[in-house]
Simulated assay, not measured.
Amino acid sequence: MSDNLADLQREINSLSERVAALRNTHATYPGDAGGTAEAALAELEYAERLLGDAGGELARALSGPAEPRRSGDDNDRVLLRAMFNELSVPVVLLDHDGYIRRINNAGAEQLGGAPGYVTGKPFAHFVDLRKRAAMQSWLAAVLRGNGPASLESRLAQRGWAEDVHLTLTRLELPTEAQPLVLVAMSPPMNGADEDGPSPLEPEVEDQVVVLAARRLDVLTRMTRLLLRGTTPTRALALTDAADLLADSYADWVIIDVCDLPEDPNAARRAAVIGPADAPEGQRDEVAALPPGDSDIPREVLGRGQSLLFPLIEDETVLGNMGAGAPALGVLGAGSLLSVPLRGSRGVRGALTLIRRSNRSSFRLADLGLIEEIGEHIGLALPPRPL
Rank of each mutant, 00 (worst) to 15 (best):
V78N: 09
T25W: 08
E315I: 12
M222G: 01
S186P: 05
I273H: 04
E67H: 03
E86G: 03
N358V: 00
Q207I: 09
G334H: 06
A61K: 04
S2Y: 12
R359N: 05
T231V: 02
D314E: 15
L337D: 00
L50P: 07
I377D: 00
L211T: 14
L211A: 15
E38F: 14
A246G: 10
E152A: 10
I255T: 02
E176Y: 04
L308W: 13
I103A: 02
Y249A: 13
A114N: 13
Q178K: 03
R348S: 05
L225K: 06
Y117Q: 09
P199N: 06
G378R: 05
A333L: 02
R215V: 12
I296A: 03
E201M: 09
A161C: 10
A59S: 10
L171M: 07
E86P: 01
G334Q: 08
A271D: 02
V91S: 10
D206M: 12
R23M: 02
D295H: 06
S2F: 13
P383L: 09
L289Q: 09
L200G: 02
G120F: 05
L51D: 02
D3A: 14
T233D: 15
L308S: 13
A350S: 09
S137D: 12
Q110W: 05
L381I: 06
D32A: 12
P187F: 08
M1T: 11
T25M: 11
K131V: 03
G98V: 14
P187V: 08
G332F: 10
S186Y: 07
L58M: 01
D206L: 12
M83L: 15
M135N: 09
F123P: 00
A212H: 12
A114L: 14
L311W: 08
R60K: 01
F309T: 04
R170A: 07
R81L: 12
Q178S: 07
E194H: 06
A161G: 14
A287Q: 02
N358C: 00
A278C: 01
L311P: 03
A288N: 12
A133H: 07
L143G: 06
D3Y: 09
C258H: 06
A149M: 14
V257K: 00
L22V: 10
D217F: 13
E315T: 14
P326W: 09
L80D: 12
T36G: 06
P382V: 12
V257W: 00
A61C: 08
L171W: 09
E375L: 08
G349W: 03
F84H: 04
D240A: 15
N105K: 02
L211Y: 08
E194L: 08
R69Y: 03
G34I: 13
G334V: 05
A177V: 15
P199L: 07
L301M: 10
G196C: 09
V253A: 13
L155F: 12
L381R: 04
T119E: 09
G113H: 14
D240E: 15
H376Q: 14
I370A: 00
